[in-house]
Design a protein around this nucleic acid. Structure first.
Lengths: 156, 156
DNA sequence: CCTGAAAAGGTGTACGT
DNA sequence: ACGTACACCTTTTCAGG
């Protein structure tokens, strides 16, 4: 059984273009892929509806805004039942400090990236917010020195 | 001496809004922050010029593009001299499979996120590319089940 | 599934406050 | 530094191939 994704080459070119410039106009998109604006708009809408394009975002320089601290945090929950996972994830989604979160295989723990203005603010987040989330059993922080590469997402 | 970032509350609300929806119109932005379109456009332009807004991007479900495999890879180098780090980083920047890379404190190892079409392609990258980079001593892979949160960047 | 044209809606500039 | 007005451009919708 083959998983026909239903995204053709034109869609892929549209995706590449909007990955590079999320505010590009439908017209310019049409020019770049060789289509008139209306089909591009239709395809874009369809890509959004199908959940392939999950949204659009401005890329903001965190350090320019004073958020100089970025920390990787590994979190283990004390139970691994679905309820605990759901409760944890709901809390995570509400914390602005958490910019990225993955559920890992293995011990079913989470890997987060937490961004704050300072170490003091990070500590406050850790003891004031994260440790207070129900089900959190273990927390391990790793501090990066610097970011070597940032692509956002892969493109062919 | 106070570090007045020169971004006031209005700017911050604009940043929050465009982080959440990078394709929002200037008009809608104006409505949401209580300003008419022209000042919003002026502020937006200024935020871009000052490098606070570095660009716009569509958030794309990588799996939709056929990149179903995402793996966190931890890499230790056998020597921690600057030359080794530089050589390693140069290699990393050239690999399209590596979408994100951080130099970590502590044991001075690297944390990468590697994205491929399949496990077979991942393995090929691992044995064919990553292990062949000079200085690589230890590699540990962690496989995520799914992404829980993807914010791109922190907002004020 | 595409084009093209017309209606609706958004943008950018100039100027007034 | 914000608002309004207006000309211009972009998006959307719909008829037709």
């Amino acid at each position: 059984m083959m998983d026909t994704t239903n995204t053709d080459d034109l869609d892929k070119r549209i995706l590449r273009a909007i990955a590079k410039n999320g505010r590009i106009s439908v017209q310019a998109l049409g020019d770049s892929v060789g289509l008139s604006p209306s089909p591009v708009a239709r395809r874009l809408k369809r890509l959004e509806e199908r959940g392939i394009v999950t949204g659009y975002s401005a890329m903001i320089d965190e350090t320019a805004l004073g958020f100089g601290v970025s920390v990787f945090v590994s979190v283990k929950l004390d139970r691994q039942i679905d309820d605990a996972l759901q409760a944890f994830e709901k809390a995570i989604l509400a914390f602005p400090e958490v910019v990225d979160c993955w559920l890992m295989t293995g011990n079913r723990d989470y890997l987060l990236r937490v961004v704050t203005r300072s170490m003091a603010e990070f500590e406050k987040f850790l003891v004031g917010s994260l440790t207070k989330v129900k089900g959190v059993a273990e927390i391990e922080s790793s501090i990066p020195l610097r970011r070597v590469k940032q692509t956002g997402s892969r493109t062919p």
